[in-house]
Computed example of a mutant assay.
Amino acid sequence: MIDTHTHLYSEQFDEDRDEAIKRAKEAGVEKFYLPAVDSETHEKMLELEAQYPNEIFAMMGLHPCSVQPETWEKELALVKKYLDKRPFCAIGEIGIDLYWDKSTLDIQVKAFEQQIDWAIEMDLPIVIHTRESFNETFEVLERKKHPKLRGIFHCFSGNLDQAQHAIDLGFVLGIGGVVTFKNGKIDQFLNEIPLDKIVLETDSPYLAPVPHRGKRNESAYTALVLGKLVDLYKKDYKEIETITNQNALNIFGMK
């Protein structure tokens, strides 16, 4: 399996990071993709990637919740500095979050658009964070339409129409613990989405799947997400694993 979205470098893993990675490997996870957040964690993320160069791959980007009036332009300049210095597997996680703070919408849009421009210029996929902001996110993506614009709608939690819109724009859906929640709702229509438009993720340490809901999530629980897809798609575990792995490798440009 491939966990396409895990914050393994976060402080929640400071006590047992290597053990958490070991547990994930034992559960069958072979690759881990780390989304960037902001300057407070970039170096920690890159150090972890350096420690596990064959299994862990870093993205670079500015998380929408870190787009703040006083610092966002400096933060973006730092992202660009990293992108110019070395290769990354994607630009992410980037996007729009209106759950915590609606007042920063205009600068969130500017930061999102700038990072999309860099992704197109560098021919990199983007990994999108969208929370209570599907309409605003789609507006930006429609404006920025380009043959090279592609990537993942991370932690997809929208409806069937929104899923189809994301796919029509050239994106796949990142499916994680939410698919196991009783009130998550995506389990009601997910099997209508072709498997070649889905990748697996945990978003650990957040959004742990049932039966661990409310506790710290970890990459080993990718197997629980995959198990839920077996139930929904009525397909063999290995088949879903193979298809979703290939989707992830195609997006991140890896063989």
Score class of each variant (00 low, 15 high):
K182S: 14
N183L: 08
F171D: 01
V172F: 05
I152G: 08
Q164H: 13
Q164P: 00
G177H: 04
V172T: 14
L160F: 15
C155F: 14
I152M: 06
F156E: 01
L160S: 10
H154Q: 12
F181M: 04
V179P: 00
G184W: 03
V179W: 07
G177C: 01
F171C: 13
G158M: 05
G151T: 05
S157C: 14
G174P: 04
L160R: 12
C155E: 02
F153G: 02
G170E: 08
V179R: 00
G174M: 00
V178P: 00
G158C: 12
F156Q: 05
N183F: 02
Q162D: 13
G177A: 02
V178Y: 01
G174T: 11
L149I: 09
A166C: 13
F171A: 08
V172D: 05
F153V: 14
N159L: 01
A163P: 08
I167L: 08
F156L: 08
S157P: 10
K182C: 05
F156W: 09
G151E: 04
R150C: 11
F171G: 06
F156C: 03
F181R: 07
A163G: 14
I167G: 11
L149H: 12
V172N: 11
C155P: 01
Q164K: 15
F153H: 12
V178K: 04
D161G: 10
G158Y: 02
Q162M: 13
R150E: 10
Q164R: 15
L173M: 11
D161M: 10
F181N: 07
N159Q: 10
G174V: 06
G151M: 11
T180K: 05
S157K: 14
G184T: 06
N159I: 01
N183A: 12
D168M: 03
N159W: 00
G170R: 09
A163E: 07
